[in-house]
Deep mutational scan, measured.
Amino acid sequence: MDVFMKGLSKAKEGVVAAAEKTKQGVAEAAGKTKEGVLYVGSKTKEGVVHGVATVAEKTKEQVTNVGGAVVTGVTAVAQKTVEGAGSIAAATGFVKKDQLGKNEEGAPQEGILEDMPVDPDNEAYEMPSEEGYQDYEPEA
């Protein structure tokens, strides 16, 4: 019985440690998101679009440190934060509304985080759909 109880105690310690790591990862992701939003706020009209992409990228980098179902929630929060940063930029006159959601080359930025393969159960990952990809044929 002692062996059984000791095993359960060790398992509990492992769960607590994993929860603490997840909590730490979420806190880091939130900190990076805040950094990115402050970065966007300090940019001029020309830099705002690039700044919004930076927020998304920093958040995406930190999301990889967070495991399990938390990833889905962090990704949703990050996307809403990026959308909010863009709205703030438009409201303050840093950028025109028609410039939001495009990178410096004018290509749409939507789907940055949505296409990231995420499995809350950590069982399997699927690649994003290939609808947006084109076949590449090298020139002879």
Score class of each variant (00 low, 15 high):
118 V>P: 05
109 Q>D: 11
4 F>I: 03
5 M>G: 02
22 T>N: 00
87 S>V: 03
5 M>N: 04
61 E>G: 01
108 P>G: 08
29 A>W: 08
55 V>N: 01
84 G>F: 04
31 G>K: 13
30 A>T: 08
100 L>D: 12
76 A>Q: 12
139 E>N: 09
128 P>T: 10
51 G>H: 01
25 G>K: 14
22 T>D: 11
80 K>F: 14
86 G>T: 05
131 E>K: 04
94 F>H: 06
9 S>D: 07
78 A>K: 07
78 A>C: 07
81 T>F: 01
94 F>D: 05
136 Y>E: 10
36 G>V: 11
85 A>Q: 07
138 P>Q: 13
32 K>D: 00
121 D>G: 10
23 K>M: 15
17 A>V: 03
126 E>D: 13
71 V>S: 04
17 A>H: 01
72 T>N: 09
93 G>F: 08
46 E>K: 13
99 Q>V: 10
41 G>L: 06
40 V>F: 15
29 A>D: 00
115 D>C: 09
122 N>L: 13
113 L>Y: 06
133 Y>W: 07
136 Y>F: 11
101 G>V: 05
76 A>N: 01
25 G>V: 01
6 K>R: 05
133 Y>A: 07
69 A>S: 07
118 V>A: 03
116 M>H: 07
89 A>F: 07
49 V>Y: 08
72 T>Q: 02
84 G>S: 09
9 S>C: 05
10 K>Q: 07
136 Y>I: 02
38 L>I: 05
104 E>R: 11
139 E>G: 09
124 A>E: 10
44 T>R: 02
28 E>R: 14
73 G>C: 11
96 K>N: 08
10 K>N: 06
4 F>P: 00
103 N>T: 12
103 N>Y: 06
52 V>S: 04
138 P>C: 04
76 A>I: 08
90 A>K: 13
15 V>M: 12
97 K>G: 11
16 V>W: 05
47 G>H: 15
15 V>N: 00
119 D>M: 03
127 M>R: 14
21 K>E: 02
129 S>T: 08
123 E>Q: 07
61 E>N: 03
139 E>T: 03
85 A>Y: 13
36 G>I: 15
38 L>M: 15
47 G>D: 04
67 G>D: 03
57 E>T: 11
89 A>K: 08
72 T>I: 15
13 E>D: 01
108 P>Y: 05
20 E>L: 01
24 Q>E: 05
11 A>C: 00
36 G>P: 04
17 A>E: 11
66 V>Q: 03
5 M>E: 00
25 G>L: 11
124 A>H: 13
52 V>K: 00
83 E>T: 14
129 S>P: 09
12 K>A: 05
128 P>D: 06
63 V>T: 05
98 D>F: 03
8 L>M: 02
129 S>L: 14
136 Y>W: 10
85 A>S: 09
130 E>D: 05
25 G>H: 15
50 H>K: 05
130 E>N: 10
88 I>G: 03
23 K>Y: 09
71 V>M: 04
115 D>H: 06
132 G>K: 14
47 G>W: 07
96 K>D: 09
93 G>V: 08
29 A>P: 00
84 G>E: 06
98 D>P: 09
128 P>A: 14
30 A>W: 08
81 T>A: 11
62 Q>N: 05
62 Q>V: 13
93 G>A: 00
55 V>Y: 02
66 V>F: 14
22 T>Y: 12
115 D>S: 10
67 G>C: 06
110 E>R: 05
128 P>F: 12
2 D>P: 01
92 T>R: 01
102 K>P: 11
123 E>M: 09
136 Y>A: 07
126 E>A: 05
19 A>T: 03
58 K>G: 00
112 I>P: 07
